[in-house]
Amino acid sequence: MAVIANTKVLTLKEPWSGQVNSGKHQLITDKPESFGGQDQGLAPYDFICAGLISCTMITLRMYAQHKGIALGEFTVEADFKANKEGEEWIERRLHFVDSLSEELQKKVLDICSKTPVTKTLLRSLKINTQLV
């Protein structure tokens, strides 16, 4: 069994605020002011979206490099949504500065459905919690 990622959060003195450490990287997590936080960093669902779109961007760039395809500059954006019935979903949008052929557009959408984080989010994930 391989550890794919390891991240730790340390509580800060401000309510809802924490310092997230992953390897040599540090980020701040917080809640928006509308939820009583200081809005000093990403909220938990922002991290989920960030993981998804980061993986999408990296996977597309790796594919393009491997196939010798020039995708040019592009952005990936995601919204985490929920409705009153308790359904949750993510809407992901890609915008390419350069136009893509219809064939390449279809390939990009196919690749997006197969990124590692996409696949993780689409299947049920077991979470084991313990006090140490």
Rank of each mutant, 00 (worst) to 15 (best):
A2E: 13
D46K: 07
V132P: 13
G23A: 06
W16C: 03
A64E: 11
H95W: 04
P15Y: 05
C49H: 04
F96S: 13
G18F: 14
L121D: 04
V9L: 12
E87G: 00
E88Q: 12
L100Q: 14
F80S: 00
L27E: 10
S113R: 12
V108E: 08
L109N: 11
C112P: 01
K81T: 00
E77F: 01
L131D: 03
I28T: 15
D79W: 05
R123A: 10
L131H: 11
E91S: 07
I28N: 12
Q26N: 14
G36I: 02
F74N: 14
Q40E: 05
F96Q: 07
A43W: 00
I111C: 03
L12V: 09
E73N: 14
N83S: 12
D79N: 09
E102Y: 06
T120I: 04
T7D: 03
F80K: 06
G68Y: 03
V3M: 12
E33Q: 13
K13V: 10
A70C: 09
L94H: 15
G41Q: 05
I111Q: 07
V108G: 07
S124H: 11
A2Q: 08
R92N: 08
G68F: 05
L12Q: 15
V117D: 05
D30N: 03
T59D: 10
E87R: 09
A5Y: 14
D110L: 11
G72K: 01
E91K: 07
K81C: 04
G18P: 05
L52C: 09
Y63H: 12
Y63I: 04
K107N: 01
L100N: 03
V9F: 08
Y45A: 04
F80L: 05
I69G: 13
F35H: 06
T29Y: 09
E85T: 04
Q130A: 11
I90M: 08
K67C: 10
A82D: 06
